[in-house]
Computed example of a mutant assay.
Amino acid sequence: MSTIEEPTPARPWRPADGAPPTVWTWPSNDRPALEVWSAGAWRYASVAARQDWPDGTVRYQVLVDLRGDTTSTHRTYAWPQPGLRKRHGSHSEPSQGVDEGRQGEMPRRAPTGR
Results as ranks from 00 to 15, higher is better:
residue 79 W to V: 15
residue 113 G to Y: 02
residue 59 R to W: 14
residue 8 T to P: 10
residue 39 A to R: 15
residue 41 A to G: 08
residue 62 V to Q: 01
residue 25 T to P: 00
residue 10 A to N: 01
residue 17 D to C: 07
residue 102 R to M: 05
residue 38 S to W: 07
residue 107 P to N: 06
residue 66 L to G: 08
residue 17 D to R: 09
residue 114 R to E: 10
residue 97 G to L: 05
residue 66 L to Q: 08
residue 82 P to V: 03
residue 34 L to C: 05
residue 38 S to I: 07
residue 86 K to C: 02
residue 102 R to H: 11
residue 90 S to T: 08
residue 23 V to M: 08
residue 63 L to T: 13
residue 2 S to M: 11
residue 7 P to N: 01
residue 100 E to H: 03
residue 27 P to H: 06
residue 93 E to N: 14
residue 61 Q to V: 15
residue 33 A to E: 10
residue 27 P to W: 03
residue 28 S to K: 00
residue 67 R to A: 14
residue 51 Q to Y: 13
residue 67 R to E: 14
residue 47 V to Y: 02
residue 84 L to T: 03
residue 48 A to W: 04
residue 88 H to K: 12
residue 104 G to S: 13
residue 47 V to W: 01
residue 75 R to L: 12
residue 37 W to I: 00
residue 73 T to S: 08
residue 32 P to S: 03
residue 114 R to S: 09
residue 8 T to H: 12
residue 111 P to A: 09
residue 50 R to E: 13
residue 81 Q to F: 10
residue 62 V to T: 13
residue 89 G to Q: 03
residue 85 R to P: 10
residue 85 R to K: 15
residue 28 S to T: 06
residue 88 H to S: 07
residue 58 V to I: 15
residue 96 Q to D: 11
residue 79 W to K: 04
residue 78 A to M: 10
residue 11 R to Q: 15
residue 25 T to E: 12
residue 36 V to C: 07
residue 46 S to D: 14
residue 105 E to T: 15
residue 77 Y to F: 15
residue 89 G to D: 13
residue 67 R to Y: 11
residue 101 G to E: 02
residue 55 D to G: 09
residue 1 M to V: 14
residue 22 T to I: 12
residue 32 P to H: 01
residue 51 Q to W: 09
residue 89 G to M: 05
residue 78 A to Y: 01
residue 61 Q to A: 13
residue 60 Y to S: 08
residue 31 R to G: 00
residue 1 M to N: 13
